[in-house]
Amino acid sequence: MDVFMKGLSKAKEGVVAAAEKTKQGVAEAAGKTKEGVLYVGSKTKEGVVHGVATVAEKTKEQVTNVGGAVVTGVTAVAQKTVEGAGSIAAATGFVKKDQLGKNEEGAPQEGILEDMPVDPDNEAYEMPSEEGYQDYEPEA
């Protein structure tokens, strides 16, 4: 019985440690998101679009440190934060509304985080759909 109880105690310690790591990862992701939003706020009209992409990228980098179902929630929060940063930029006159959601080359930025393969159960990952990809044929 002692062996059984000791095993359960060790398992509990492992769960607590994993929860603490997840909590730490979420806190880091939130900190990076805040950094990115402050970065966007300090940019001029020309830099705002690039700044919004930076927020998304920093958040995406930190999301990889967070495991399990938390990833889905962090990704949703990050996307809403990026959308909010863009709205703030438009409201303050840093950028025109028609410039939001495009990178410096004018290509749409939507789907940055949505296409990231995420499995809350950590069982399997699927690649994003290939609808947006084109076949590449090298020139002879």
Score class of each variant (00 low, 15 high):
P117E: 02
V16K: 10
V95L: 13
K58T: 05
A19L: 11
A69Y: 04
V26C: 14
E57Q: 08
G86D: 04
V15N: 00
V52F: 02
G14R: 14
V95H: 12
P128Y: 05
A69D: 01
D119S: 05
V66R: 06
E126N: 11
D115S: 07
G93N: 08
A85N: 03
K58Q: 15
A56F: 11
K34V: 14
D115H: 13
V74M: 11
A19S: 05
G25D: 02
E110D: 04
V48A: 02
G106Q: 05
I88A: 04
V16Q: 13
E57W: 04
E20A: 06
G101Y: 03
G132R: 15
G25P: 02
G31D: 05
L113G: 08
P138K: 06
A89C: 12
E126F: 08
G86C: 12
V77L: 14
K102W: 11
V82F: 14
G106I: 11
E105Q: 13
S129M: 09
S129N: 05
K32C: 03
E123A: 04
A17N: 08
A27W: 11
T72D: 13
V82M: 12
N103C: 10
A53M: 15
E137P: 08
P117L: 03
A17L: 09
A78Q: 04
A89W: 15
A30C: 06
K102C: 03
V40Y: 07
F4C: 02
K43L: 05
N122S: 05
A56T: 12
G25S: 10
K43A: 04
V49H: 14
S87E: 11
D135I: 14
E131S: 13
D115R: 08
N103V: 15
L38E: 03
A69H: 12
E104T: 12
K23H: 03
G47Y: 03
K102P: 08
G51M: 12
P138H: 05
V37H: 00
G106H: 06
E61Q: 09
S42P: 01
K12H: 05
E61A: 06
E126W: 04
A85E: 01
T44G: 06
K102L: 06
G14D: 03
T72P: 01
E114N: 12
H50S: 12
G68S: 04
T33Q: 00
K97N: 06
K45S: 04
E139H: 11
F94Y: 13
L8A: 02
M5E: 01
